[in-house]
Simulated scan of single mutants.
Amino acid sequence: MDEVDRAIVAVLEQEGRISNSELAARVGLSPSPCLRRVRQLEETGVIRGYRAVVDPAAVGRGLRVFAGVRLARHVRADVAAFESAVMQLAEVRACHHITGSFDYLLHVEVADLAAYEDFHASQLASLPGVATVNSFVIMKTLDNP
């Protein structure tokens, strides 16, 4: 990646729906070479996709929680079973394998506290290999522009 590729990526991170001609103008290229570079960035996996950023509350997921999960054992089979099962849960928006006090940090979105209580009791705590779950309710998120 050169500086032009980095500029393309920076613009697309902020404005994924920008037209190719506008993108080209912003990074100092003509449209054809700009489009070739974007396609190359997509093909090599630098750009992994495009998506809408949705307000969770507007779609019935107003409560966001980080859940720290510790596994009982760290053998490959238990880890694989947990990872496979957790990624099947629609409420889990992201699952991060981390270091520190927890093995995984989950980003969970549900309608409200009652929905989280039900999710925690009926699904999360009963995932394969789970020893403990610590929940942290997100009160406010500050995003970088």
Score class of each variant (00 low, 15 high):
Arg76Val: 12
Leu23Val: 05
Glu43Lys: 15
Gly45Phe: 00
Ala131Lys: 08
Arg51Gly: 11
Asp55Lys: 10
Arg70Asp: 14
Arg64Leu: 09
Leu71Ser: 05
Val59Phe: 11
Ala52Asn: 13
Gly16Asp: 10
Gln14Glu: 15
Val137Gln: 05
Asp55Met: 04
Phe119Asn: 02
Ala72Cys: 09
Leu113Gln: 14
Gln123Pro: 03
Gly68Arg: 11
Gly49Glu: 00
Ser135Tyr: 10
Ala81Arg: 15
Leu63Gly: 08
Met87Tyr: 15
Ile138Pro: 01
Glu13Met: 13
Phe102Ser: 12
Gln88Met: 13
Gln14His: 15
Gly68Leu: 07
Ala52Val: 06
Glu15Asp: 14
His74Gly: 09
Arg48Ser: 00
His74Asp: 09
His74Ala: 10
Pro31Val: 11
Asn134Lys: 10
Ala131Cys: 00
Leu127Thr: 00
Asp5His: 04
Phe66Gln: 09
Gly28Tyr: 03
Leu12Lys: 06
Ala58Cys: 00
Gly100Cys: 13
Thr99Asn: 13
Ser32Leu: 01
Thr44Asn: 06
Arg37Phe: 08
Val11Ser: 05
His120Tyr: 13
Val59Tyr: 13
Arg39Lys: 12
Ser84Thr: 14
Val38Arg: 08
Val54Trp: 10
Ala121Pro: 02
Gly60Leu: 05
Val133Tyr: 07
Glu42Ile: 10
Arg61Ala: 10
Val65Pro: 01
Ala81Pro: 12
Glu109Lys: 00
Thr141Cys: 03
Arg73Asn: 14
Leu113Ala: 15
Pro33Asn: 11
Ala81Gly: 01
Phe102Leu: 14
Asp55Leu: 13
Leu41Asn: 00
Leu29Cys: 09
Ala131Thr: 01
